[in-house]
Computed example of a mutant assay.
Amino acid sequence: MQFASDNGGPAPRAVLEALAEANTGYAPAYGTDPLSQEVEERLRALFEAPEAAVHLVATGTAANALALSTLCQPYQTVFCSPQAHIHMDECNAPEFYTGGAKLTLVPGDDRMTAEALRAVILGEEGRGVHGPKRGPVSITQVTEYGNVYTLEALRALADVARDHGLPVHLDGARFANACVALGCTPAEMTWKAGVNVAVFGGTKNGLLGVEAVIFFDPAQAEAFAHRRKRGGHLFSKHRYLAAQMAAYLRDDLWRDLAGRANARCAELAAGLDGIAEIRNEAQANMLFAALPRALHRRLMAEGAAYHIWEGTLEGDDPAEMLTARFVCDWALDAAELQRFVDLVRAGA
């Protein structure tokens, strides 16, 4: 009954086999090996962007922070949601890698609106050299609250950014889950919607650790390779990153894994419907739901693993509703999910 994080799940056999296959003989280092070159071409084909600059890194934090540092000067600011991953979960890495650029939060919930973004952009840069210059717009897709921006919403945000000459960064740690939820192509969710640089995440969707940073205008990526090396994120044995991504792309494994995770989340939402207080629509692979404190305690005593999001298990009122986050990954067993639902129903 593992719902703690899609970071905690296993890698599919195809990925491990690809690593074993790559682990033979010798290959050039630092991304100059044939497999790395092949993966770059395959990602360009997947995104329908033959001129795109493609770079692999091992973590989402590196992908986002290095991408933003390439788009943003130290005296600029990045516009994002208060619940954006770069604000909530990156330990100030974007500020560190950009050399001090700040984050300007766009008021609202986890999904920015074009109107709110425009208002915040217009309100910035009114102090000349005493304030930050406008910089990139960063969008988290899927959001930290499990919601998905529609293609229309993405285009509206990108239109606002373009009106002010600002680039758009898409944090796609759960990129595949969003694509499956929207039933769209990677191109439709990125450059066709106005995104300038996208992170095509793999770690949360079954890979051991690799993310692709894709600049649709290669001129904007000129500094990325140098920043990746300077920041300590250029792997010498780069073929092991490429091997994972190669397996991920083969036969649309990335889409299949995300589809499984999303389907499990929908099943969980259906199972808890009418019992838990559901906080978000199960669009991708994360569900937020409230249950009584006493029931949370019983579930965890039975081995369920997940995180309390609002409130604490400690407290005197057993009936107090505590909101928890449940994350479904590709490997979540259907029987274990049903066991969890049965325990909830039995204790409700």
Rank of each mutant, 00 (worst) to 15 (best):
S5A: 13
G8N: 12
G9A: 10
R13D: 00
V15M: 06
E21W: 11
N23R: 14
A27R: 12
A29N: 13
T32N: 14
T32Q: 15
P34G: 06
S36L: 03
E40G: 08
E41F: 04
A45M: 06
A53R: 14
V54H: 10
H55L: 15
L56E: 04
T61I: 15
T61R: 11
A62P: 04
A63H: 01
A63G: 05
L66A: 00
L66Y: 01
L68P: 01
S69Q: 08
L71P: 00
Q73N: 12
Y75L: 09
T77V: 15
P82T: 07
A84F: 09
H87P: 03
E90Q: 13
E95K: 15
F96W: 12
Y97F: 14
A101P: 02
K102I: 02
V106Y: 06
V106I: 10
D109K: 15
T113I: 10
T113V: 14
A114Q: 08
G123W: 06
G123S: 11
E124A: 15
E124H: 11
R127G: 00
G131I: 01
P132S: 03
R134P: 00
P136W: 02
S138D: 01
I139M: 08
V142H: 09
E144K: 14
N147A: 09
V148W: 10
A158K: 03
H164N: 04
P167T: 00
V168H: 01
H169P: 00
G172V: 03
A173Y: 07
A173K: 05
A176G: 05
N177P: 09
A178H: 07
C179K: 14
C184T: 02
E188M: 03
G201Q: 05
K204L: 15
E211N: 13
V213H: 00
F216D: 01
P218H: 11
A219L: 12
A221C: 10
F224C: 07
G232S: 11
Q244R: 02
A247L: 08
L253D: 06
L257N: 05
R260Y: 08
R260H: 13
C265F: 11
A270W: 00
I278T: 04
R279A: 14
R279V: 05
E281V: 09
E281G: 08
N285A: 06
N285R: 02
F288Q: 04
A290D: 08
R293T: 05
H296V: 12
L299M: 11
G311A: 03
G311I: 00
T312Y: 10
D316I: 02
P318D: 04
M321I: 03
L322H: 02
T323D: 07
R325Y: 01
D329H: 15
A334C: 11
L337M: 12
Q338H: 12
L343D: 07
